[in-house]
């Protein structure tokens, strides 16, 4: 638990959740652990923000929920992606990638930009 904790930007959590659900229906706990494992323990999703985010996504009809039985035979609420959610994930991913690339370009620059010709 001593790993670097990265604060999640607002809005980023939503697309991480959507991405996590692309592999199949999951309950809330499984979503956190999936994100943690997938990011090599870099991203820790706090429970206090996860559930409201899940419910908001559900109310926006990007994910839907259904009660099911978990691996240890307990009643758990499973979330799965709707087609609307899939669409949203695709477009948000593109935006995120463009954003990350742009930020990287600026941060990794080794010399100032060329003089603008007015």
């Amino acid at each position: 638990m001593e790993k670097t904790r990265l604060e999640l930007f607002r809005g980023t959590l939503d697309i991480l959740i959507l991405k996590a659900l692309i592999w199949g229906p999951l309950h809330g706990y499984a979503i956190t652990s999936l994100i943690r494992r997938q990011s090599d323990d870099a991203l820790l999703v706090e429970e206090g923000t996860l559930y409201p985010a899940l419910w908001r996504l559900e109310s926006k009809q990007m994910i839907e929920s259904e009660w099911g039985l978990s691996e240890n035979n307990r009643k758990a609420k499973y979330y799965s992606l709707t087609s609307e959610g899939k669409r949203h994930l695709r477009s948000e991913t593109k935006i995120w990638q463009a954003y990350a690339m742009a930020v990287a370009k600026v941060l990794e620059a080794t010399h100032p930009p060329a003089q603008e010709i007015a």
Partner: peptide, 13 residues
């Protein structure tokens, strides 16, 4: 529902 869902989460933990 909400209680059960959160309870489940804590139990997993």
């Amino acid at each position: 529902d909400i209680k059960a869902e959160l309870r489940f989460h804590i139990d997993c933990k």
